[in-house]
Amino acid sequence: MRDPYLLLGLNDDADDTAVERAYRQAIKDCPPERDAERFQALRAAYETLRTQRARLSYRLFNHSEPELIDLLDRAVPCGTPHRPDPASFAALLRGEA
């Protein structure tokens, strides 16, 4: 299971309002008709964090091994996409390993 905080882009100390706001924004950015699977994941994350009790429950009972993608996203979040440089194009076109 992905870290619900990371999925919704929340800090560890997020409260009910922040969770609600992040969820609404997330489903606005990725409505179910665009990506049903991601929407399900967002929904599950929201349910996991919706209330203070739910958040404590997650903290107390979640014993699933942390996913590597969560470690990565937590340590160094993804930035803005940028363009590869001409050398990258050249290497691919030349078939370099």
């Binding site: 590597l68 993608i69 990565l72 160094v76 979040p77 993804c78 930035g79 940028h82 590869p84």
Partner: peptide, 29 residues
């Protein structure tokens, strides 16, 4: 992202650099 990371071991150095730039990966990431 999860599928991309799964495919990671099969990619060449240049493919990784090219795709991760398009995905917004910083050198630190």
């Amino acid at each position: 992202e999860s599928v991309f990371l799964e495919r990671w071991p099969t990619l060449s150095r240049h493919q990784r650099a090219f795709a991760s730039a398009l995905r917004g990966w910083s050198p630190e990431r």
